[in-house]
Design a protein around this nucleic acid. Sequence first.
DNA 1: CTGGATCCCTCACGATACTG
DNA 2: CAGTATCGTGAGGGATCCAG
Lengths: 222, 222
Amino acid sequence: MASRGYGQYCGLARALELVGERWALLIIRDLLVGPRRFSDLRRGLPRIPSNVLSDRLKELEERGVVQRRILPRPASATVYELTQYGAEIEEAIMRLGTWGAQALGEPRPDEIVTADSMTIALRSTFVPGQATGKHLSFELHMGPVVLNGRIDNGNLQVGEGPVPQKDLVVYTGPALKRLFDRSLTPQQALEADLVTIEGDPALLETFAQVFQIGSHRETASA
Amino acid sequence: MASRGYGQYCGLARALELVGERWALLIIRDLLVGPRRFSDLRRGLPRIPSNVLSDRLKELEERGVVQRRILPRPASATVYELTQYGAEIEEAIMRLGTWGAQALGEPRPDEIVTADSMTIALRSTFVPGQATGKHLSFELHMGPVVLNGRIDNGNLQVGEGPVPQKDLVVYTGPALKRLFDRSLTPQQALEADLVTIEGDPALLETFAQVFQIGSHRETASA
DNA sequence: CTGGATCCCTCACGATACTG
DNA sequence: CAGTATCGTGAGGGATCCAG
């Protein structure tokens, strides 16, 4: 599609020529979480035809955004990972993601959530300034997806899967987005059973405070 | 293309369903500069077929990103402008633009520069922190494109066309990008005749300091 | 002249099947 | 597991035509 360029000497046009094709940014989103094998990417993007995934990876490699790497023995598997230049697109993707997240309503029945997309969602909505002095290790269940995370001062680490040590376990669904865009308070979410937790309810307040979609300037005027 | 969704309940996927189709982000780029008529957009995007432009505008309108407005008489023209939500994509587009700009080499012979793309380029590469205490009004000529601008402390205003009052006039081409990514100093640019000016050469230093592509952390270690 | 709509061609995308 | 091959469909590209 973007194989034929836009005919403009412009940074944005060039960016779209590099990563503007269908599926490309979602592939990069998953690679931002870590190196991935072909089949990992397929699992994370169930709707992408394998030939399209193959094409995209080839194009992104040619364009210096992605590189193939052969894992040392005994694995001997090929993984795809972002080049240094490719990784520098992270901020742009995060901004696009939070912009698009504001248009998310209820999930359509055919829409899924993946561990990688949720990992990026947490990283992109995390507001370091809201987390100064806060410490919390949590486990987050969104349907079949389980993530773990640790908030330490202005820092956030997110991983996949459960962990033994945690202060708070959160079970939720799409209501998580309403927590992050402040259209629902933690207390309301608990009362309406949209969120279930293990641990101190006060910790859910902390959890909800450090993630944010949109600017919410109205709080500044209060 | 993105008419069929990605099947993911994810902010980035939703963003791509809204503005991920070919040409959409370039249309939005031009609308970020100001409201534009259909023919303005065509002029700024000479390679877009008119039916595709028409389709994109219709889709973007349905999706709440763009709105049509009828200008009051006697103009009576319809203009397209971003909705408030649409305008909030600005930061994401700016980041994408500076990311892509790093991959810009020499312009291909069929690549053009437009006033709107240059306006966005200036706005996206402007570093307010580098402009504290600086004041400069300039006129910038990139081939046939003429912009004017005013830097005041951490603030930048850019307009199209020449202006009577200015401290500095810059005539240049693709070398401007090399000024902004620090692969060329103002002095080198003048000596190599890649940039011509009217005004004090010291003002070109000021001009070059406040615009920046990439992070340039290497200066921190020096 | 602006602001599109229509037509036709081509090629990229998408689904499925198949191979190393 | 990691892709390649094949093929139908539909979106993009470009020229032309039409209405206000």
